[in-house]
Simulated scan of single mutants.
Amino acid sequence: MSKPYLIRTSLEELLGDLVEGDPFPPERELAARFGVARETVRQALHELLVEGRIERRGRGTVVAKSKLTQPLSLRSYTEGALRMGRKPGRILVSWDDVAAPADLAAALSVADGAPVMRLERILLADGQRIGLENTHLPLHRFGGFRETFDPTTSLYAAIRATGVEFGSATERIETVLASPREAGLLESTTAMPMLRLHRRSLDTDGTPIEVVHALYRGDRVAFEATLTDGD
C-alpha cells in the first residue's frame, strides 16, 4: 500500500478515538510519529479538512462537528437544522429591490425589469457560518415584508403566515468554488469546495414564490433525499 493511503488510514483510526472539539495532533507531530514527510501528512490533513472531519480553530486543529444534513424537500433550512439538534441563525448581508433581468423575470412570472425583492443572508448553525443564501421574491406579492419580516428568522414561516402554501420546487445542486467575496462571508477560502443550490418554488396554484441561489460550505453541509418507487 502507498504511504499516503496508510497515513490516511492511520488518521481515520486516530479520529475514531476522539470526539467533537478534541485537539488533533499537529502536522509536525504526526510526521514524526509515522516516520513520513510532512508533505504526506499535510495532504491527508487537507483531505480531512475538506471533508469536514477536522477544522482549524485559532492556530490549531480540532475534531469538527458532524455535517448539517439538509433534506431535499420543501422544508426550510430552519427545520433541517432543528431536526439535527442544531441552533439555526442568520446574518443579514443585504436587502434591496432590483430590476429583474429576463431569466429571473421569466422564472418569477413577472415582466422584464419588474422590481423584485432580493434578500442575501448568511446561514448559521450553532454560530458557524454554513451557507450564503440569495432569495428573490416578487415584490408585488411580498413587498409587505419590509414592515413585517425579521430577516434573522425563517422566511418560509413568514411566507406561510401570509396564507401561501408551497406546492412544489425544482432544485439543482452542483459543486463550485467560491468567489473571494463569498469565501470571505463564509469565513472559508476560495480553494474549499462548495455546493451551490438553485431552487425555484411554486405555490399550490403553480404560481412562482421564489428563486433561490444558495452556496453551502462543502465541509459543513450535506444534502439527502428520500426516494420512493414512482410506479
Rank of each mutant, 00 (worst) to 15 (best):
residue 29 E to C: 04
residue 125 A to D: 05
residue 163 G to P: 00
residue 185 L to Q: 15
residue 78 T to A: 07
residue 190 T to I: 14
residue 178 A to H: 01
residue 9 T to H: 12
residue 171 E to W: 10
residue 95 W to I: 05
residue 95 W to H: 11
residue 58 G to D: 05
residue 144 G to T: 12
residue 1 M to C: 05
residue 56 R to G: 08
residue 137 L to S: 02
residue 146 R to H: 03
residue 10 S to E: 07
residue 19 V to E: 09
residue 220 R to V: 04
residue 194 M to D: 09
residue 38 R to V: 02
residue 114 A to W: 05
residue 198 H to I: 09
residue 46 H to G: 03
residue 228 T to E: 13
residue 42 R to E: 12
residue 98 V to H: 06
residue 171 E to V: 13
residue 54 I to V: 14
residue 104 L to K: 04
residue 138 P to T: 08
residue 86 R to D: 00
residue 58 G to T: 11
residue 88 P to R: 00
residue 56 R to A: 10
residue 57 R to D: 02
residue 102 A to K: 08
residue 31 A to G: 06
residue 132 L to S: 00
residue 56 R to K: 15
residue 152 T to K: 08
residue 152 T to H: 06
residue 24 F to Y: 06
residue 2 S to E: 08
residue 95 W to K: 04
residue 187 E to K: 13
residue 175 T to E: 15
residue 184 G to A: 15
residue 52 G to H: 11
residue 114 A to H: 08
residue 139 L to V: 08
residue 192 M to H: 13
residue 18 L to Y: 02
residue 142 F to W: 03
residue 83 R to H: 11
residue 156 Y to F: 11
residue 195 L to D: 04
residue 202 L to P: 12
residue 201 S to F: 05
residue 63 V to F: 06
residue 80 G to W: 00
residue 30 L to Q: 05
residue 162 T to G: 04
residue 3 K to C: 02
residue 185 L to M: 14
residue 96 D to K: 09
residue 130 I to L: 00
residue 209 I to Y: 08
residue 214 A to H: 10
residue 69 T to N: 03
residue 39 E to N: 09
residue 149 F to E: 00
residue 53 R to Y: 01
residue 20 E to Y: 08
residue 34 F to E: 01
residue 62 V to I: 15
residue 116 V to S: 05
residue 210 E to T: 13
residue 171 E to M: 15
residue 225 A to S: 08
residue 6 L to R: 14
residue 89 G to K: 06
residue 92 L to R: 11
residue 55 E to L: 10
residue 151 P to I: 04
residue 11 L to C: 04
residue 175 T to S: 15
residue 95 W to S: 09
residue 153 T to Q: 12
residue 165 E to N: 13
residue 72 L to E: 12
residue 212 V to P: 03
residue 75 R to I: 05
residue 164 V to P: 10
residue 66 S to C: 02
residue 100 A to Q: 01
residue 39 E to I: 06
residue 90 R to W: 10
residue 49 L to C: 02
residue 45 L to D: 02
residue 155 L to K: 00
residue 125 A to T: 15
residue 195 L to A: 13
residue 105 A to T: 07
residue 76 S to D: 09
residue 184 G to D: 15
residue 129 R to V: 14
residue 203 D to W: 02
residue 43 Q to Y: 06
residue 78 T to K: 11
residue 187 E to F: 01
residue 143 G to C: 09
residue 101 P to S: 01
residue 219 D to K: 01
residue 217 R to G: 00
residue 39 E to R: 13
residue 56 R to P: 07
residue 167 G to D: 14
residue 200 R to V: 10
residue 9 T to P: 00
residue 185 L to S: 11
residue 90 R to Y: 13
residue 228 T to R: 15
residue 94 S to V: 01
